[in-house]
Structures are given as C-alpha cells and as structure tokens.
Simulated scan of single mutants.
Amino acid sequence: MEATFSTSLDGIIIIDSHGDIVEFNKSAQKMFGCCRDDVLGMILRKRSSRHLTAKPSTRAC
C-alpha cells in the first residue's frame, strides 16, 4: 500500500476520524502547493462540493 500511495499520480490525502490530515502524498503536494510537513495535523474541512481548505487544528495535544 505504501508503494501505491507514494507513487500514485493522483493526489491522496488521508484523514483520521477527527478530520486531521495524517498523510499527504507527493501528488497532493503538487496539486495544492503545500509541503507534507506543513499540512500534517491540520483539519480538512469541506467548504463546498468543489473547494477543500485546510485549517490548523485547535485540539489540545
């Protein structure tokens, strides 16, 4: 599964049950113009059927 994730031409974002981004592949980095380390731990929220935005997590660590 790791090989598929890392070599996929499709952008893949994996989130946990809280909506936190826990994985972000290289294609997603190119699509969104974000580095993986910058988005890990952010909360993915659906704004509309076409737009996704990342918002920093406010949960206590």
Rank of each mutant, 00 (worst) to 15 (best):
R47Y: 08
M31T: 04
L40S: 04
D10Q: 13
I15R: 07
S8A: 11
K55N: 07
R50M: 08
C35S: 12
D37K: 03
K30R: 11
D20N: 14
I12M: 10
H18G: 07
S8T: 02
E2V: 05
H18W: 03
M31H: 02
K46M: 13
F24A: 01
D38C: 06
V22C: 05
T4K: 03
S49I: 11
A28F: 00
A3K: 13
H51V: 10
S27Y: 00
I21Y: 01
N25Q: 04
V22R: 14
S49E: 12
S49F: 08
K55V: 14
L9S: 13
S57K: 06
T7E: 03
I21L: 10
G11C: 06
H18D: 11
T58Q: 09
Q29N: 05
Q29E: 15
L40D: 04
G19R: 07
M1Q: 09
P56T: 09
L40F: 05
K55T: 10
T53A: 15
H18T: 13
S48C: 09
T58V: 13
S17F: 11
C34M: 12
S27V: 02
M1T: 08
S57M: 02
D16M: 05
V39I: 15
R50G: 02
T53Q: 10
E2T: 12
D20Y: 04
F32E: 02
D20R: 15
H18P: 00
A60Q: 12
L40N: 03
R45Y: 06
D16G: 06
S48Y: 01
R59D: 15
S57A: 12
G19Y: 06
S27C: 04
V22F: 02
I21T: 02
R36E: 14
E2F: 04
T7V: 00
S27I: 01
S48T: 15
M1R: 09
P56W: 06
D10L: 09
P56Y: 07
D20P: 00
T4C: 02
C61H: 12
D20S: 15
K46N: 14
K46W: 03
I21V: 15
D20F: 03
S17T: 14
H51S: 09
S6G: 00
K55I: 14
L9D: 10
P56V: 07
K26W: 01
L44H: 03
F24C: 05
L52A: 05
D16A: 05
R50T: 11
G11P: 10
F5K: 03
D16H: 06
I13E: 01
G19K: 08
G11W: 02
M1K: 10
I43K: 15
S27M: 07
G19M: 08
M31Q: 04
S57L: 04
T53F: 15
E2I: 10
R50A: 07
I14Q: 08
E23G: 11
H51Y: 08
C35Q: 13
A60C: 09
P56H: 10
K26T: 07
G11L: 05
F5T: 01
Q29R: 02
I14G: 04
S57E: 08
I14T: 11
G11V: 07
A54G: 09
T58W: 01
A60N: 13
H51A: 05
Q29C: 14
I12D: 02
T7G: 01
A54V: 14
E2D: 12
T53E: 15
F24S: 00
S17W: 06
C35E: 14
T7F: 02
V22Q: 06
G33S: 09
P56C: 07
K30G: 03
L9Q: 13
K30D: 10
V39Q: 04
M31L: 12
S49N: 15
